[in-house]
Design a protein around this nucleic acid. Sequence first.
DNA 1: CGTGTGAATACAT
DNA 2: TATTCACACG
Length: 510
Amino acid sequence: MGVTGGLLKILPNAAAFRKVDLRSFKNGIQHSTTTKEPTPLRIGVDICVWMVSADRAFGSQLGDERHFSNHGRAELLNAGETEESERERLERDLNYVNCCTEYIIRRLNALREETNVEILVVFDGATPPGKQTEVTDRRNRQAVYEQQRDEPVDTTGSREAEERRIKALRKAGASRHYAGVYTAVMEALRKERIPFLVAPYESDGQLAFLSMKKYIDLIVTEDSDLICYGASPILFKLKDSPMLEGIFEGILVCKEDLAANQGSVNLLDFSPGMLTVLFVAVGSDYSPKLDGIGIVTACKIVRKAFLSGHEDRLAMVFEGLFAAARKLSLTEEDKKVYKKKFMEALLAYRHPVIFDPVEKRCRLHGITHDGEVSETEAELLTHVPYAELVNDVKRRERITGCIQPPSLSILIAEGYVCPRTRRTRKNMTIPRNVKADLIQLGIWKDFNNPNGAETENERHDSSNSSNQVSGIKRKSLRDPRLKPCDEDSSTDSGDFLYSQPFSTRPPTNG
DNA sequence: CGTGTGAATACAT
DNA sequence: TATTCACACG
């Protein structure tokens, strides 16, 4: 996940943020000046955070409830080895998955009903190889939590130990059942006719792509990395508590907001490439940061490097950063490593692997299938080592991941194939036409019915698959509303302000 | 002045 | 547990 303080790092002046209530879009938006009829606001929801949220809400179920009360703890100690039965455990796990799923569906439906928006849910896919090291660390931490969760009840009954345990429980949460929640949510989405899409890799890049192609009008996420991808507009911090008023309020961030509010940090004249460089410089998921480089310093360095007419801007950026950094023990080797990581991060943000729902295949953002790189990247490609990285398919794939053939990509996007393992998902109803595709790809595996006979259930579902599966195929991938709305969607030339769809923007409060 | 730190607070569960 | 504040360092 993104740098949480990142939003504030970039935009320290919170007052300048626009608080927006999605209900004010009930009547749709004026999509372009040529279209008269307002159309529903199309939002892409980064569902990952909602899953985490569900996890937080129900994760404690995974532990024995008795651990939470003194009475229960005593009971456990007296009973000695009161291992819950297998049956009990399964029931509890199932209940957990159901709770999480219901939680998410409830929110999405509430959102849909109250705001009349069109929702496209976007799931995270595989972790890009370039980020793998981070994730490995995260997994180690996760393992520690799980270990703490599963360790026997502290016989001393010390409060600290118990609190630690509960905390660990919360954090470990669904990890073990995450796949279960994933498939359950996807099944539920099909049932509810809510379009969704599984990104080949990170949802950030996918959402940014959808946004830039104008397949969606607004991104709903918690991840400030989206800014780094050059996406706009973005709605952060959408309240997710069903009890409170203001569930549909969030903080809207458009490109203009990056410009206006702060004296020393004015990003108005920043190209998308510069913005990415800036984000990488202040620290990202993909690369470490230099000590002493904050938003202000980085901003100055990037501006100077890009706007002072120097050919090799990236080299200038590096120079500036190294000069400004508190150079305690910055050896040549350190610099070399830093530059390498920096460029890898840059590649990851500028050219993520995405699924194009109109072309119906994966590709690198900003790079055509013929390997032609977008004009917007010219200012970065003048740095030879970076250009080499971008143009070297093998090295590139080691960062961004591979581009799967369309047949497989579609099945991944539709949720039938796990993007990480590239195998059929367990516990998922597979319609007949999808099954045929899976067989053809040689990755079909019938988890529920090993002898291969068609069940009543399956028959039922395939008969209606033209509507249902294609819940995703029809509703989101083939939905005409997902076509680019303007012919100017190809004008990628640095303009990602996206002010057009928000011509009916509600009055700002605050 | 900007950055990095830890402590205090408000918040939600 | 996340955000905000106050302070020290360069």
